[in-house]
């Protein structure tokens, strides 16, 4: 059914401006990138995105993003649970601070994490005796990507947990379920769509992340060099074709992730109503 445009004015001008601005800022530059990649030809493109150094960077980027997102899925769920279910001193403050990774510029997070988790850093010093090096290794990349993805799972799970009907848990308890059974069979399945959405959001954010990673990563080619950094490296070497090919491969991954997240969110909403 077509809605009443009836009396409200300004439809053409606002929609026109929206589409124009969107095209100028987003769509045209993005298309130009794809066009540029097309000039490489298929073999050129394929060779550019499959050279060993690039493959190693994919492995690190996706592997560390996955690890970070998994850590966040677990601890994010825990943090959301604790924030919703329990009362403790400083809860409100902690709740507000969970969004810090959204608000803190990535460069600041990067230098801070690098200092914190270096061999002599406040946190790093506890790992040195164990023979674990965090900063300037792939482990450091995981730490940075955990940091920047932290709010996603908490913020997607939290509202679902808040709205969760107490009656469902009471019903499970009255039917003889233990607390753990109630959690794993009643609560967790209800949280699953949101948890997956949060996980996917954290993963998607981590894959493209640059600022918070480069300071802590060490950036050793083949070992701790992430794909976004490799794009910049190629750009600085005037290898525009290589940079473009890498960018397009990352864009394609982003789009696939965006579509899956949209689908997840629809599923999540369906489950809520």
């Amino acid at each position: 059914m077509l809605k009443r445009h009836g009396v409200l004015p300004g439809f053409s001008i606002t929609l026109g401006f929206t589409v124009l601005y969107l095209s100028l800022i987003v769509l045209i530059p993005l298309s130009a990138t794809f066009l540029k990649a097309a000039t490489l030809g298929w073999t050129g493109f394929w060779n550019a995105i499959t050279e060993p150094r690039v493959l190693a960077s994919y492995k690190l980027t996706f592997g560390a993003s996955l690890a970070g997102a998994l850590i966040n899925a677990g601890f994010g769920l825990l943090v959301a649970w604790v924030l919703v279910r329990y009362e403790f001193f400083g809860k409100k403050l902690i709740d507000a601070l969970v969004d810090l990774p959204f608000a803190l510029p990535t460069a600041v997070a990067g230098i801070s994490l690098a200092t914190l988790y270096s061999g002599k850093g406040w946190a790093g010093q506890f790992f040195t005796p164990l023979g674990i090096k965090i900063a300037y290794t792939p482990l450091g990349v995981v730490v940075a990507l955990t940091f920047i993805g932290l709010p996603f799972v908490v913020r997607t799970v939290q509202p679902i947990l808040e709205d969760f009907e107490a009656e469902l848990e009471e019903a499970a308890a009255s039917l003889g379920a233990t607390r753990w059974q109630t959690f794993s069979r009643v609560i967790l399945p209800a949280l699953l769509p949101a948890l997956l959405t949060g996980f996917a959001l954290a993963f998607a954010r981590a894959v493209g992340e640059y600022g918070s990673v480069i300071f802590i990563a060490g950036n050793i080619p083949m070992v701790s060099e992430i794909t976004p950094l490799l794009i910049i490296t190629k750009l600085e070497q005037y290898d525009y074709a290589g940079a473009t090919a890498l960018a397009v491969s990352m864009l394609l991954v982003s789009f696939v992730l965006l579509l899956s997240i949209n689908a997840l969110q629809r599923w999540s909403q369906l489950r809520r109503t």
């Binding site: 969107l22 530059p29 493209g208 976004p228 750009l235 473009t244 864009l251 982003s254």
Partner: peptide, 24 residues
Amino acid sequence: LLITLIDLPFSVSPVVSGLIYVLL
């Protein structure tokens, strides 16, 4: 579709966001 496109910049890596203007 328009809403999805408006959200697009959020899912693009910051490095790529800069690169597209360099390429243009």
